[in-house]
């Protein structure tokens, strides 16, 4: 079950191949179709520094950053889901349900309204605001849910939902108060990748590397956390400190994803869960495999969002929510039955 190195490597290679195929498909399809061969040719010309036909600008300047951003957002959300599920030993935990996405959204909105749309504001201020919002939210949710040092599954989810609603209302309030930026904020909060550009890609790639490298290097400690805080402590892990560090990593990747694409729900829930079912709970495999699978999921969801009502684009968050809501209900019913 995922413990053998060969099957682990095979699974990762397969997921990487799936990602490559979905990226090419994501670039090729859209309002204007570009054949996959043309996509590769355009990339080749851009790398060589040669000029090409007008379509190159669409492919290089719009499509590719958008698809790459979708992939990075998916990887970030899935990574955060893996971390929350391990730390809270709860298969229903994900950044959206825990309210962390809403917290990041409020932080990002405040930063957006305050810092405006300068390049520095958008690339540093908004993610920083989102990060602060995410950290404050997870601290609040854990404090609300935790009684006598134990986190009850149901109370964690209830606290998350309650905090999530409150923060979403606050975000709406901020939007209404600052009218001029309302339209931009609304579209972004619904979960969209329309504003994709290369600087965003660079920023989110850096965030993903920062936020997932430490968890990946400490995969064994994440495995230990599955045994519970007390048992992890008995086996030599300072569970409290480790949990804080991992929550910071998770908040960072969520903040990065939310600050470029708004609220995209259920990716952090579905992807780690499905990957765990197939490859087992070993985090050395689960973390990279979930990141890859999350990337594939959001690239495909964004493709659907662009194609289904073309030329009108749906926010990608709507697509993931329509797929993820029923999945969550199924998971909840299954968990309740297992008791």
């Amino acid at each position: 079950m995922g413990a053998r190195p060969t099957s682990r490597a095979a699974a990762l290679v397969a997921l990487a191949a799936a990602l490559a195929i979905s990226v090419v498909a994501g670039v090729a399809f859209g309002a204007v179709k570009v054949p996959p061969a043309e996509v590769l040719a355009a990339v080749g010309r851009a790398l060589a520094g040669r000029s090409g036909p007008v379509e190159d600008a669409v492919v290089i300047g719009l499509r590719i950053p958008r698809v790459l951003l979708a992939a990075l957002v998916g990887a970030c959300l899935a990574t955060a889901g893996v971390l929350y599920q391990a730390l809270f030993r709860n298969a229903l935990a994900d950044p959206y349900i825990l309210g962390v996405s809403s917290g990041a959204g409020l932080g990002a909105t405040l930063a957006f309204v305050a810092a405006g749309s300068t390049t520095l504001g958008v690339l540093v201020g908004v993610p920083a605001g989102a990060f602060a919002g995410a950290l404050a939210t997870i601290a609040l949710v854990v404090a609300l849910a935790g009684r006598a040092g134990r986190l009850e599954s149901t109370s964690l989810l209830l606290a998350g939902v309650a905090v999530s609603y409150t923060l979403a209302a606050l975000t709406s309030f901020v939007m209404v108060v600052s009218r001029e930026s309302m339209h931009a904020v609304v579209f972004w909060m619904m979960g969209g990748l329309q504003r994709a550009s290369w600087p965003y890609v660079g920023m989110l790639a850096a965030v993903l590397v920062l936020g997932s490298a430490v968890p990946f290097l400490r995969a064994r400690e994440l495995d230990l956390m599955l045994l519970g805080d007390e048992r992890a402590g008995q086996l030599g892990l300072d569970a409290q400190r480790f949990t804080l560090a991992m929550l910071a990593c998770a908040s960072l990747v969520v903040a990065g994803a939310v600050s470029v694409s708004g609220l995209i729900g259920f990716v952090g829930l579905m992807v780690p869960h499905a990957v765990r079912l197939v490859l087992g709970p070993d985090h050395r495999t689960l973390l990279p495999a979930s990141a890859l699978a999350g990337a594939v999921a959001v690239v495909l969801a964004d493709l659907v969002a662009r194609v289904v009502l073309a030329p009108v684009e749906l926010p990608v968050g709507i697509v993931t929510a329509i797929a993820g809501g029923p999945f969550f209900v199924w998971l909840l019913v299954r968990t309740e039955r297992a008791r």
Binding site: M1, A3, R220, D223, L224, L226, L235, G236, P281
Partner: peptide, 21 residues
């Protein structure tokens, strides 16, 4: 234990305090 960790990996976690980070 509600997760599908292999028995060998489960025992191997006992080596944690002897391993560097």
């Amino acid at each position: 234990v509600p997760f599908a960790m292999t028995a060998r990996r489960f025992v191997e976690l006992g080596r944690h305090p002897h391993l560097d980070v």
